[in-house]
Design a binder for these strands. Structure first.
Length: 589
RNA sequence: GGGCAUGUGGCCUAGCGGACAGGGCGAGAGGUUCCUAACCUCUAGAUCGCGGGUUCGAAUCCCGCCAUGCCCGCCA
């Protein structure tokens, strides 16, 4: 399906028409047009868009809002505007109704597999997400990052941006030096069995052992260890190849395992960008040199620091021992992003907000256009008893959550096999497929459907509740669409809205028409959860249609063909909305 | 102490300046000779944390307070 068929969407076009029409009517009367008050009306109003301008103009015109609305409705010339059929006053509101072309084109656009994708914007954006330190298994506390990050990247991709997904790898920090020292020092025989037979689970045992040692061992032994850790850090700073290799071995192993875990979501990356890259290529040194020359930098307590006007906390950018810090390297990293991309989006936990704020201000001081940088901030998922920690080994691993979710989904599928009304048979592969799609989908949907800033306390029962407003509800709609389309045989969909006369059909069609607008708006605000809200609304509409309107058993062939087109459009809208969320759309359930 | 975020029926959540605050779970009552009942219908349940303010209009904006979380490291 070609990009040539991608459109900005009927609703977006209709929205522009409504704005143009209303603006023209207001200008003709010399009224202000700065706030047209265009909104989507409540569900029980048939109009597709409405305006509340009449409230604002009532004062100027010296008439009550309903009178103003009635007059303005008379002024609007619907004929001149694409998709606009008519405008009707309704109390103080103006209700705008689209014409049949709007519905016909929605139906027609909906036949495309790519429905919901917006035209290419010729703008590149790098989405950095996850970027968890390669110290051990991915736990649920930070699982929000890949799930939200992947959805943000998908969303921007659908909205027409050229998206690259990056994982920024901390391979230069103290934690990794500790890890490397511990890996080289301790004997596997002294470690507990790994919780799972995969690299990061085996490796994290050294990390935990090392941290434990540094906390509990006698001082002389700790000092010796610290000297070794320092040697690794200094080696990296000095560009010592041997140091890079030692660290690289640990990082590669752990990261390899973490990637396997993330791939289950699936969250995949175009590039793993290593911090050490910006040490080796000299750009961190360059940043340090420029910062030293800056008016707001000071040399205090043997370290170079940057002061801020509005932040009471200095940013140390060069330690007293001459080594750089995470943020120093991140500055070089971001200048590299600016050089290679039009926009940069970073998904990060709320604990990084201060650091992100300092980073942004410092980048501006260094002469960068920081409008290109946007953050998506999320709160961590905590356990009822507190925070999850890789170092302390507290927390629920993402692998375990996914395993449990898939297992429960399998139980559900199997328990339903007996009382299926449907004649088709699900074989063992179907059961596997459905269990995975539903189980993983439920976990992702549960996370991505919520506003990221809200805190989540992890509870098994809640995370695995398939009954609630969840992935299966919305996935089931897709499966139902596929079921109908599969049985249609040689009866072809026809994108003609004329036979679609019931409220249930029109409501569904209106919901289908909204997808491109939802994608555009959600992408503008980097809010993928709005797409999840949309899937629920689309699902509600579809289920009502399904109940009230037989498709294959409709009275005449024209209605069958039109309803088939509506089902196909609903299917593509749902499949692509789910694709944005990173949730699979099952063909059968 | 300072900064940032969050606070919507028992629980989870949408809405974030406009039409009666939508859903879901849980509770109660129903629906399947018909394209998959992982569905649908109905009932009960909300001082939108509290108090002020701005506005024709506030869950939504502003101020204060309370509660919770995060941050305030030459860690990341």
């Amino acid at each position: 399906m070609g990009a040539g068929r991608r459109t900005c969407g009927m609703l977006l076009t209709f929205r522009e028409s409504v704005a143009d029409a209303l603006r023209a009517a207001l200008e003709a009367r010399d009224l202000p047009t700065d706030d047209l008050g265009i909104e989507e009306p409540p569900a029980d109003v048939d109009a597709v868009l409405a305006s509340s301008v009449a409230f604002r103009l009532a004062g100027d015109l010296g008439a009550p809002p309903p009178e103003v609305a009635a007059e303005l409705a008379g002024d609007v010339d619907a004929d001149d505007h694409r998709f606009l059929d008519r405008v009707e006053p309704n109390g103080p509101y103006l209700n705008f109704f689209p014409d049949e072309a709007y519905f016909r084109e929605t139906l027609s656009a909906g036949l495309d597999d790519d429905y919901g994708r917006l035209p290419d914007r010729d703008t590149s954006v790098v989405v950095e997400h996850t970027s968890a330190n390669p110290t051990g298994p991915v736990h649920v506390g930070r699982a929000r990052n890949p799930i939200i990050g992947d959805a943000v990247a998908n969303l921007l991709d659908y909205a027409g941006y050229d998206v690259d997904r990056h994982y920024y790898v901390n391979d230069a920090g103290r934690q990794i030096a500790v890890f490397t020292w511990a890996y080289e020092t301790f004997d596997e025989a002294d470690l507990p069995d790994p919780a799972r037979d995969r690299a990061e689970y085996r490796m994290v045992r050294y990390y935990r052992k090392g941290n434990e040692f540094l906390e509990e061992a006698p001082d002389p032994e700790v000092e010796a260890a610290e000297a070794e850790i320092q040697a690794i850090l200094q080696g990296l700073e000095a560009g010592d190849e041997a140091a890079y290799e030692r660290v690289g071995e640990v990082v590669d192993a752990v990261l390899g395992g973490m990637r396997e875990c993330l791939a289950r979501l699936p969250a995949e990356f175009d590039e793993f960008v290593r911090e050490t890259r910006f040490m080796r290529d000299g750009s961190t040194d360059d940043v340090v040199a420029r910062l030293k020359d800056h008016d707001r930098s000071v040399y205090e307590e043997d370290a170079w620091q940057l002061t801020f006007e509005e932040i009471d906390k200095n940013l140390v950018f060069l330690r007293s021992d001459g080594t750089s810090l995470y943020t120093t390297r991140d500055l070089a990293h971001h200048e590299w992003k600016f050089a290679n991309y039009d926009r940069a989006v970073t998904v990060l936990g709320e604990d990084h907000k201060l650091q992100a704020d300092q980073l942004r201000r410092t980048l501006r001081m260094l002469g960068n256009d920081v409008d290109a940088l946007e953050n998506v901030i999320y709160s961590y998922v905590d356990l009822p008893e507190g925070k999850m920690s890789t170092r302390e080994g507290t927390g629920v691993q993402l692998d375990d959550l996914l395993d449990e979710a898939v297992a429960r989904a399998r139980e559900e599928v199997e328990s339903r096999l007996d009382d299926r009304l449907r004649s088709d048979e699900l074989d063992a592969d179907d059961v596997d497929r459905i269990a995975r799609q539903v189980g993983v989908g439920a976990v992702r949907y549960d996370i991505v459907a919520k506003q990221p800033t809200k805190g989540i306390t992890f509870e098994w029962e809640q995370a695995l509740d398939f009954e609630a407003q969840s992935a299966p509800y919305v996935q089931y709609v897709h499966a139902r669409c596929c079921g109908i389309l599969n049985e249609a045989g040689d009866r072809e969909p026809t994108p003609d809205p004329a036979p679609l006369t019931t409220d249930a059909e029109r409501d569904l069609l209106r919901a289908v028409a909204r997808l491109p607008g939802v994608v555009a708006d959600a992408a503008d605000d980097l809010e993928p959860h709005r797409v999840a809200t949309y899937t629920r609304e689309l699902g509600d509409r579809f289920n009502r249609f399904y109940r009230e309107c037989p498709v294959l058993g409709a009275d005449d062939p024209e209605t069958v063909a039109a309803r088939l087109a509506l089902v196909a459009a609903a299917r593509h809208a749902m499949a692509n909305a789910l694709d944005v969320l990173g949730v699979e759309a099952p063909r059968s359930m």
